[in-house]
Structures are given as structure tokens and as C-alpha cells.
């Protein structure tokens, strides 16, 4: 464990807690893409299958349970909670996210480190996580004005992968044979997808005005 990875995990944890806080306290999920939340639930479900077979540390297992629990409960809130589900803008959140799942699955079947069931699903979860934010970014473009909590959620989510890139550089430099091109490229693509959001987020923060994304 290194400081970059810990910072990344804490930022990731903060992003899901911000979202859960928003949904639980104001009983609203306006501006949140259910599609992205469903993709994240699939990402965690396919990535943490090894929770039953291999144990790394209490921290590792605890965080996996937290991420699984939070992502599935956010999807539950947005789909079934009587008050929250009414605030979900279904008409705007129209990204065909299943078109993201299939290519990621095919790619995982083609490019992976080992051709085993767990490894292919794990690789699939990496590819899917890289693109999972797209429905949310599209929704933010459409709804234009972003409330603070949703903006913070996307910002923290992008930041966590940025910290992970520093972690991979650190591990590459300090651990012999730590080379995982698939993870690195997927993580880099994911972070780049946030680039323009980060740009507008900092612009709004610097000029201290409401975050507006160009149409």
C-alpha cells in the first residue's frame, strides 16, 4: 500500500459517500445517471468475485464490501425508493449503456492476462469502469446546470483514478515485475474521459460561478 493508492481509495470512497449522502438526505437523485450507477454495480460485481476466493487484507475486503454495498444500494434507491425514483430524470438519461457492456466483454475475451473465468471478468470490469462515467457525463451536458453534490461526485470519481495512475507509477518504480499494461491503459483512458469535465470544473471553481458545461 502506498500513499497514492490510499488517497485514491479514500477519494473513491468519498465519491460514493457524497452520492449516497445526496440521495439519502435530500431524497433526490436529480442529475444522477442511473445508467452509470448500474454500470458501476456491474463493475464491482465482476471485479470483486475474488472476495470469496482470495484474501489480501481486512482493508481490502472491507472496502470491497463497502463499494459493493454502496453501488447496489444507490441503484436500489434510484429504481425502487418511492420518493427518490420520482426525481430520476428518465427522459434525459438515455445513454444506451448496454452498448458499452458488450464491447467491453468482447474486448476482455480478446485481451486479458490469463484466460480464466475470474481473470476475464476482472478484465471486463476494468474496461467497463473506464467508460462507465459516459452516461453521467452525457446527462450533465444535457441538464447543463450541475448541483454541487453531483459535480463533487464526478470530480472525486475522476480524481480517484488519477491517484491510481500515480500509484501505478510508484509501484512500477519500486516493485520489480509490476507491469500491468491492461490496467494502466484502461485507467489512463478513464482519467482522460474526465479531462474536459475537470477543465470546466476548475473554471467554475476559479471564477466562483455555477458549473456550466457547454452544450
Amino acid at each position: 500500500m502506498n500513499i497514492f493508492r490510499l488517497a485514491g481509495d479514500m477519494t473513491h470512497l468519498a465519491s460514493v459517500l457524497v452520492l449516497l449522502l445526496k440521495i439519502h438526505t435530500i431524497k433526490s437523485c436529480a442529475g444522477v445517471s442511473l445508467k452509470t450507477q448500474e454500470l458501476y454495480a456491474i463493475v464491482f460485481a465482476t471485479r470483486y468475485l475474488d472476495i470469496f476466493t482470495s484474501f489480501y487484507s481486512i482493508y481490502n475486503t472491507l472496502m470491497k464490501l463497502i463499494f459493493l454495498g454502496s453501488s447496489f444500494s444507490i441503484v436500489w434507491y434510484m429504481r425502487y425508493h418511492k420518493t427518490v425514483r420520482r426525481t430520476y430524470d428518465r427522459e434525459q438519461d438515455t445513454f444506451r449503456h448496454w452498448f458499452l457492456v458488450l464491447p467491453c466483454l468482447l474486448l476482455a475475451l480478446l485481451i486479458h492476462e490469463k484466460f480464466t473465468f475470474l481473470e476475464v471478468l476482472w478484465t471486463f470490469s476494468l474496461y467497463l469502469e473506464a467508460v462507465a462515467i459516459l452516461p453521467q457525463l452525457v446527462l450533465l451536458q444535457r441538464t447543463r446546470n450541475i448541483d454541487n453534490l453531483t459535480g463533487q461526485y464526478v470530480f472525486l470519481l475522476g480524481g480517484y483514478r488519477g491517484f491510481y495512475i500515480l500509484n501505478w507509477i510508484y509501484r512500477y518504480l519500486t516493485e520489480p515485475h509490476f507491469v500491468h499494461w491492461i490496467t494502466w491503459i484502461a485507467g489512463l483512458v478513464q482519467t482522460l474521459l474526465y479531462a474536459d469535465f475537470f477543465y470546466y470544473y476548475f473554471q467554475s471553481w476559479k471564477n466562483n460561478k455555477k458549473l456550466q458545461l457547454p452544450a
Binding site: 481509495d9 482470495s54 489480501y56 481490502n60 463499494f67 492476462e113 476482472w122 491510481y164 500509484n167 490496467t183
Partner: peptide, 10 residues
């Protein structure tokens, strides 16, 4: 068993 470092991350 030997836990490969690739999957020790979240």
C-alpha cells in the same frame, strides 16, 4: 496461495 499483486488493488 500466492496472491498475485495484480489483484491486490480495489
Amino acid at each position: 496461495e500466492e496472491t498475485d499483486a495484480a489483484h491486490d488493488e480495489l
